[in-house]
Design a protein around this nucleic acid. Structure first.
Lengths: 238, 238, 238, 238
DNA sequence: AATGAATGAGGGTTCATTCAT
DNA sequence: GATGAATGAACCCTCATTCAT
């Protein structure tokens, strides 16, 4: 049932590495497996085999499957946040700041698909402690994006400021869109991450500024003007 | 938010239902469990218990865990697609069409969180047959959205038309944003799905039309004009 | 794991047969399944399906899987014994009597492979009650053969008589040989059961008479004469 | 003779054996259980318990129930064939060769009843892969016997030679007889395997040579001469 | 005469985890 | 620094069997 394990680039670093190095190497492999199978379906066996070490070593260094996952989660969270902050400090002001951030975000998600999958695509229901940690990590990412959005827009000439809810809204939408667009990129491999960033900026920039300005889109004709008073058109399930 | 199976609304319909009814009821429960735990971590035992039936009955009617999941997948896919198409046929022309579609989409995703989780949030790596089916289902949803986008924009006054890649891009971005926004809604429960739809329309509508018009957003100062020639700012992992 | 079920000639006698008839029909199907899969691997489901009836009917008429098997066992035992006795009474005296018996035996085993498999090829370990019954049935068959052998040889001109042990020996050897030869016949389908009987008679007839005469074969050179005092040449296991 | 697992000689070698040793020990136990219950009715649980190890260890070393069975099958096949070949090489020529072979065969079957049961008494219908392997193993045994028969008789002074069909016939008959005679031996425990071998040789030796000479036994009075034209005396079933 | 609905019990298999070296 | 040996617990699935009609 596990047909898709590509043994291709297994970083089989044999024999007697210092602990720190081994830990990193195990985490590298773990991320790949967690990304490919999801936390529950991933097996410590496969991770150990991919890393070329025995299972007890994994436990010796990383404590447990959960500990291993959390270690990966934290490491990749740090990397992604660092990417953001790098990008932000490189740029002075204005919308360029948002753009640079998005670009960094997109570059990261595109370069490190497995990291992103570990951060964002794990199924729920993994036990209380982990659920909390995952939530926290996602929130950290969202917070970065939100900060970026807020600063970008405010600095970029906006007169007002985004409320928390608004900024969160935009951040969620951006992160979700970016996540989904990683799939899109797989179908159009000729598009570079940077092109994708530009497309996404083009798609949302104006709208973001409108939200900033307090404008709300309304359907031509008005909300109560006609055909739409009739519910969502969704047939209820169950 | 995990681990404690809330027995609250369990549709415990005891004793001797006709097959068709039981199947639906089992699927109702299965969707809840699959959504909460993910496919791998979900146990047929828990599903059966939630449905108030014995495990063998689940297998008698739904063949296997995989069969059960696929049955859920197909049912919810059908429901979501139906919601789309209902909404589309209710509206004549113009951007209203897109809005109605998005609204239906959003209403559905918001009303049937579990269905959406089954359709869109399952971890990868579930075996070949299932992976293919999940991919197909997701593509079906994306196709609906893409059609909507294209029709909405073309009818809405656009002079040109969206290429496949463009329309796909927008569809991916919209679906991803909407997905992510279901999380946002959980943090702001006072926002109705319809308000969220309006927000999202506001955020993307103008930009979509710009993409339609062939415009590409560029950073002020130009792409090569200064601070940005230096890569993505992302430190490589591994 | 059940690739070899040939649905071909299923005697699907539909609708409302009198009990006696249904019982026989179910047993017909049961014998096929028991022969093909062995008692343990046979499933009541498959038997019921093959018979075109519902499972509860099988239980209503035959009590249990064990009861069903025993019913088959007894029926086929009776048929085989009857075949023997028919053959025996048709013939007056002498070795012809043995030949006729063997012929009947062989004809039966060849015609009713499934019956024979139920009688003789079931794995052991089926519970105490059944083990006893199977042993009894096999013994019944062996008793028939032994009687035949004894009468055949005594009548056929033997001066002495076979002791119980001798007769049993011959009977066992004959039955085992015949059983194994049903496999041989499958590889040489052009050989009729009657030809096989003649071959077997040719192979054992003289020897049987020698055993009768009390002769014991000894290796040329004598039992202690040379190379053989050294054990069986069998390497011990474990 | 069933149901009560005799703990008597259980080779309970506790604690930390090297893999190879454990494997052999597990197989020893497995052979006992497979012989007693048959493949389908045997449970890995019982095998593990008998071996004094946990179930997962069985799977770790032997892959699966099927793998475990096949490993046993191959090991015992090898042992039996080795016994044959040992015996054969110990003897120069003539019928002694056949006798030695039969003696080895008989000694083996008598000493290793469980091995023989695994090789020869498994119910059919065990899935395609296993059925093929079992068939192959049985054929290997038959081939040994056939070779022995052919060499034994040819060297033993026969002028002609046995055709394939003839040799196969004899081999089947011998193997079947020997199989069945293991049951006989249980009822007459005072008979040594060597005595049984002699009896069997006496019973078949002359006849084998006659088959070799092309002679076919015919009933006194001829085949069509009288009472026998009337079929087999077998009432057809179904 | 016959069946659709349903289950207790148990079997094969896997997995995270530990022990002893 | 690292591993070979081993297991408790849980999971997917099947099967003989019964209930209610």
């Amino acid at each position: 049932m596990n047909e898709q394990r590509s043994r291709a680039h297994a970083p089989q670093a044999r024999r007697r590495l210092p602990r720190e190095e081994r830990e990193q190497q195990i985490m590298d492999c773990a991320i790949r497996v967690f990304a490919q199978r999801g936390y529950s379906a991933a097996s410590v066996d496969e991770i150990a085999e991919l890393a070329g070490v025995s299972k007890p070593l994994v436990y010796l260094y990383l404590e447990s499957k959960e500990g291993l996952f959390l270690a990966c989660l934290h490491r990749e969270e740090g990397r992604l946040v660092a990417a953001f902050q790098n990008a932000a400090t490189e740029v002075g002001t204005s919308e360029l700041r948002l753009w640079a951030g998005l670009r960094a975000f997109f570059g990261f998600v595109s370069d490190h698909k497995d990291s992103w999958a570990v951060l964002h695509r794990q199924a729920p229901g993994l036990g209380d402690a982990m659920a909390a940690e995952i939530t926290r990590a996602r929130r950290a990412v969202l917070t970065e994006v939100r900060t970026l959005v807020r600063e970008g827009i405010e600095l970029g000439g906006g007169s007002g400021h985004l409320g928390d809810a608004d900024a969160d809204f935009v951040a969620h939408a951006l992160v979700g869109a970016a996540d989904s667009l990683t799939d899109w990129m797989e179908r159009y491999p000729e598009e570079s991450p940077d092109r994708v960033t530009l497309r996404l900026m083009g798609m949302v920039w104006v709208g973001m500024r409108q939200i900033l300005g307090g404008e709300v889109w309304t359907p031509p004709g008005g909300l109560e003007g006609g055909a739409f008073e009739g519910g969502t058109g969704v047939a209820g399930a169950a």
